[in-house]
């Protein structure tokens, strides 16, 4: 379990405040909120790229607040997937294993295993620029999951996909969760992503985490209102 307690991060005039957040094992937590409220800052703080001025981050009771990013086991998937352009898909996926000191055989076995699970065995020799958006996303997930992280941190991973591919990507992640059962925090401002994927939804405004809700509970909350109104307006227009 990952617990965030009384976390405060100051970046110039901006302050991020997370009074308390618990992410259970194998939970898929979606973080929602308007643009610019600090969702990405929150993910980068969890990943170890910003130092909090107060508060703690605990992983199964172990305080990792001051750990450097490479020692946390929190793997990041940014908006554009952050694939290493000079490496093949195989090398991209192998990177995390190699820097952790796995021997060549173990690296090969694990890369082949995750490539099998994510159905990307046929593209292992390709460079990222040769891949479609969907394939890039799968490679990013494979690279993040192959190291068996404590949690994966996804920062709006569907934002570059068109609506049809977006629906496919959601289904793919749901299937993957059934197969591998990983823990994740997924930042989005898309209500459909949140409702379809999230076990629970955390809501942020003005740099502060306002609460964590079950999906139905969130839909009934005033925070979901603007998103639902948008959907209603669309439905009304279609009628």
């Amino acid at each position: 379990m990952i617990v965030v307690e009384d976390l405060v991060v100051k970046l110039g005039d901006f302050t991020l405040e997370i009074p308390r957040l618990e992410v259970r094992d194998r939970e898929y937590l979606v973080v929602m909120g308007p643009s610019g409220v600090g969702k990405t800052v929150f993910l980068l703080t969890l990943a170890g790229f910003f130092t909090p001025m107060r508060g703690r981050i605990l992983v199964n009771g172990r305080n990792i607040t001051r750990y450097p990013p490479e020692k946390r086991g929190f793997t990041l998937i940014p908006q554009d997937y952050g694939l290493f352009p000079h490496m093949t898909v195989y090398e991209n996926i192998a990177f995390g294993l190699e820097v952790r000191g796995f021997n060549k055989k173990d690296v090969r076995d694990r890369v082949e295993w995750i490539a099998e699970v994510l159905e990307i065995k046929n593209i292992l020799g390709k460079k990222p620029r040769e891949l479609s958006g969907g394939e890039q996303q799968r490679v990013a997930l494979a690279r993040a999951l192959v190291v068996k992280p404590e949690i994966i941190l996804l920062d709006e991973p569907f934002s570059n996909l068109d609506p049809r591919r977006r629906a496919g990507a959601r289904e793919f992640i749901k299937e993957l969760r059934k197969k591998l059962g990983f823990t994740a925090i997924h930042v989005t401002h898309d209500l459909v992503d949140a409702v379809e994927l999230g076990d629970r939804i955390a809501y942020m405004e003005s740099g502060r985490l306002l609460g964590v809700y079950g999906v139905e509970e969130f839909l009934k909350s005033p925070y979901a209102r603007p998103y639902i109104d948008n959907v209603k307006a669309l439905v009304k227009f279609l009628r």
Binding site: E70, R72, L76, L83, V99, R143, A144
Partner: peptide, 12 residues
């Protein structure tokens, strides 16, 4: 972001 990903994957 490429460098951030590499560090989160365990690279010093």
């Amino acid at each position: 972001s490429i460098e951030l990903v590499a560090r989160s994957l365990g690279g010093s």
